[in-house]
Computed example of a mutant assay.
Amino acid sequence: MNNYILQDENALYFECGFSCDHAVFLKLGSEAFFITDARYTTEAAEVIKNATVLEGDRRDLLKTARLLIRKSGIKSLAYNPAEWNVEAYARFSDKLNINFQKKPNFSQQKRIIKTETELEILKKAALFGRDAFHRFGEFLKHDGLGIDEMMAHFEAESIFKHKGALDLSFSPIVALGANAAKPHALPTRKTLQKGELVLLDAGVKYQRYCSDRTRTSVFDEHFNFEKKQQFKDAHQQKVYDTVLLAQKAALKAVKIGVKAKEIDKAARDVIDKAGFGNYFVHSTGHGVGLDIHELPVIGSRSETIIEENMVFTIEPGIYLPEQFGVRIEDTIIVRKDGAEVMG
Rank of each mutant, 00 (worst) to 15 (best):
L320C: 08
V288A: 03
V204I: 13
G299V: 07
L251G: 04
T188W: 01
A246P: 07
P321T: 04
K255S: 14
L245W: 00
V218W: 04
V258S: 10
G285Y: 02
V297G: 00
S283V: 03
K232C: 04
K232E: 14
H286M: 12
Q193R: 11
Q237T: 01
G277I: 06
I292H: 09
V243W: 05
A246G: 13
Y240S: 02
Y279F: 15
R215C: 05
G285Q: 02
G299F: 02
V243L: 03
V311N: 02
K259Q: 15
E294M: 15
Y209W: 12
I271L: 10
Y206N: 08
E294Y: 00
K255R: 15
I305Q: 13
F225S: 06
I256V: 15
S300W: 11
L295C: 07
D241H: 03
M310F: 12
Y240T: 02
E308A: 13
V258D: 11
L244E: 03
D201Q: 10
V204T: 12
E303H: 10
Q247L: 12
A250K: 08
R189Q: 13
L192R: 05
K273F: 07
H293W: 09
G195N: 11
K252H: 13
D220R: 03
S283E: 14
L320M: 08
R301M: 06
K238V: 03
L244I: 12
H282F: 14
V239W: 06
E294I: 06
K205Y: 00
K232T: 12
H286V: 12
V297Q: 11
T313M: 01
Q247K: 15
F280A: 13
K252I: 02
T188C: 00
Y209G: 00
G195A: 06
D291G: 02
A202T: 05
K238R: 14
D269W: 02
P296S: 09
H235L: 13
A246H: 07
